[in-house]
Amino acid sequence: MGVRYIVGAMVVNRPHGVLAVDAIRVRRAGWQLLVYAVLLAVAAVMVLPFLWMVSTSLKTLIEALRFPPTWIPEPARWENYLAAWNAAPFGRYFFNSFFIAIATTIGEVTITALAGYAFAKMNFLGKNVLFMLLLGTLMIPGQMLLVPNFITIKRLGWYNTYWALIIPWIASVFSIFLLRQFFRTIPDEFWDSARIDGCSRLRYLAQVVAPLSRPALATVALFNFVGSWNAFLWVLVMTDKVELRTVPVGLRYFMMEMGTDYPLLMAAATMAIVPILILFFFAQRQFIQGIARTGLK
């Protein structure tokens, strides 16, 4: 910063150097003000729909349909949440979503860590061909696979079972790639000395590589959990039983039943979002690092 400032002053006409520096300073401050104003405005636009959601969820229907709209409900009707919760089997929906998200996350972290390690640190026949093949699948739109996978799921007898919602989602090429990239940064000397001590690869992966790669593993776990929680189309297609609905699918049916009872709908939407919000607050750093890392190849 300091260097650039001096350079900037030198570029300006010398006889009025001091004045020019002041002018730059004022212009800088003006720019800064504009920058912050724009950023605040954009942030407001980002957050407003969520505030509107929560605000509506605490109103009576009459209050929600008031025009011009009000922001602060008078009084806040927290009982809307209880009413929404009881209007549909949300307990079941939440159990399903949590169960599926946790199961797929455990499976995904384990399976992709094994695969990522093989690609990062082992030398084997067909490695490069296999890796390119896997990377190639990233170009396949998941929706293209919906019809053939539906037939497979039916054939396996997994239609309307938890298997259909868990097993296909415990290995993703993206996670394998991410972990491989991370594992590659671990020095080979660690393995050399572990091997001399008679350590197996599996134990080395579990006791040395995994602890060293906690940030990457956490990123994979987080992305998987969020992806599983938000999944909609797959669940919609592979099940048609109320007992197997997840939160998003349940929310959709709730919407179809409630029609225009916006306070209850918004209460339900808020409930669907809250677990993700809590997760984000606790793992904000992991989220940001993960997203930044994927963006930075």
Partner: peptide, 8 residues
């Protein structure tokens, strides 16, 4: 979740 967002 996109379903919740779209509902809002």
């Amino acid at each position: 979740p996109v379903v919740a967002i779209s509902l809002v």
